[in-house]
């Protein structure tokens, strides 16, 4: 049971941490942890099929898309 609470803490903490970063590349990497945490939490909440989708999209694909955007624009927040 303790795993769920650790995962919830990781999700909220990484979300907050991602939004306060000045370097957008760090934001992208930390938001990937949030996606991964959500995927694991879904797994713990008995939604295995959703967890697989969320693991691919939330921790790799969407951060990848945001990373491409950051590369094409500017890396630091003005």
């Amino acid at each position: 049971m303790i795993i769920e609470f650790v995962l919830m803490f990781v999700i909220v903490a990484s979300t907050l941490l991602a939004l306060v970063q000045k370097d957008l590349m760090r934001t992208v990497i930390i938001i990937g942890f949030q996606g991964l945490g959500l995927a694991l939490l879904y797994q713990r909440l008995l939604a295995a099929d959703v967890a697989v989708t969320q693991a691919i999209l939330g921790s790799a694909l969407l951060p990848g898309l945001i990373a491409v955007t950051v590369f094409k624009t500017r890396r630091s927040q003005e």
Binding site: A18, L19, L24, T27, I31, I66, T69, V70, T73, Q77
Partner: peptide, 8 residues
């Protein structure tokens, strides 16, 4: 203020 953070 940052557009990418709004999207997030």
């Amino acid at each position: 203020d940052n557009i990418i953070k709004k999207i997030i």
